[in-house]
């Protein structure tokens, strides 16, 4: 009898590939989003099987939960607008065949490159694990993943946060307006649920941030949980974005990036390079950066879900038909 875990892994891998294909090929966009969400959940499980709980947490919280919510919101938005448009028939045949073949060739090249990279890499090496383990005492934290993300390769993480910041800037440029619909009536059962769940979810979000120093967790995972809490607050109409809140929102968007970059440059003031935290202050600095990053990530993800700058609309951009 084969190893049951191997059988499980094979089924899991096949399911992940199948769901990815399904999400790409299915005609109905809603079904596509749902398949994508399930795909993300199984990917998170796959990361657990690969002994990467940090990545699994991030995949489940951001890749699945929040991205799923963003996609559903986008779909809702598109359908609302497209209904007024009398959707033009999207013909699959309109793509020129030369373009298709070029795409296919490029895709095959990428697959071949990846395959070559995997097959060409030496088998069963420890990779950078030993290097990280050696340097871990100097990093200020005990979780190797956090040490890599916030210390050894911190510039990489800084760029990720900048990407998020750029996304929200673009969204606020594209769409503005105020939601004048009344808050949805979700009933007393929702009220009771929110009363118990919202505070507890906030505690769990901050806990994930705190735990990142020596266990799986960190700014992105904690920020995603807090953003999800914020989504419930937005959906339940408990908080309504207001034009007067924009300066605070902007401040919170840039808080993490500014603090991250600022600290990186400040520590360079001595005879160090940027991002080279002094060893005895490394933990405090990392926790400070992570805390501020979490706030920025949570608020930015919330704003992305809300999907517009809360400002009075001066021009009617919507196309009449």
């Amino acid at each position: 009898m084969p190893d049951p875990l191997l059988v499980f892994d094979l089924i899991l891998a096949a399911a992940v590939v199948g769901l990815a294909l399904g999400a790409l090929l299915v005609r109905d966009a809603f079904a596509g989003v749902l398949l994508f969400v399930v795909f993300g959940l199984l990917s998170a499980l796959a990361w657990v099987r690969l002994a990467a709980p940090d990545v699994a947490l991030a995949e489940a919280a951001i890749g699945t939960g929040l991205t799923g919510a963003l996609l559903l919101k986008t779909l809702h938005h598109l359908r609302g607008d497209l209904a007024a448009w009398q959707s033009p028939p999207v013909a699959a045949a309109s793509v020129p065949s030369a373009l298709r073949w070029t795409n296919a060739a490029l895709a095959i090249l990428i697959v071949a490159g990846l395959g070559w990279a995997i097959l060409g890499s030496p088998l069963r090496t420890t990779g950078l694990e030993l290097l990280v383990a050696d340097a871990l005492p100097h990093s200020g934290v005990e979780n190797p993943v956090t040490a890599v993300l916030l210390n050894f390769r911190a510039y990489d993480t800084l760029m990720e946060v900048v990407v998020l910041l750029a996304a929200v800037i673009v969204v606020w440029q594209i769409e503005r307006g105020l939601d004048r619909r009344p808050a949805p009536d979700l009933g007393p059962v929702w009220q009771g649920f929110a009363r118990l769940t919202l505070p507890a979810a906030a505690i769990v979000g901050v806990y994930l941030l705190w735990a990142g120093a020596d266990a799986p967790g960190g700014a992105f995972q904690g920020g995603a949980i807090l953003a999800a809490t914020g989504l419930l607050v937005l959906l339940g109409g408990l908080y309504r974005p207001d034009p007067a809140h924009r300066p605070v929102a902007r401040l919170l968007f840039v808080l993490g990036t500014v603090a991250f970059a600022g600290i990186a440059l400040l520590v360079a003031a001595g005879s160090r390079v940027s991002f080279e935290y002094p060893q005895d202050q490394a933990k405090a600095l990392i926790l400070l950066i992570e805390g501020l990053l979490t706030i920025s990530i949570a608020v930015t993800l919330m704003a992305l879900f809300h999907g517009r700058e809360p400002a009075a609309q001066h021009r009617e951009i919507r196309h009449e038909r």
Binding site: P199, A200, Y239
Partner: peptide
């Protein structure tokens, strides 16, 4: 030392509670 984060977490959670109508 976890209360360095736990304190703000509890405050944030209480603030969320105040957003809900009093019961």
């Amino acid at each position: 030392e976890s209360w360095l984060f736990g304190g703000p977490a509890v405050l944030l959670a209480l603030w969320l509670l105040t957003l809900l109508p009093p019961a």
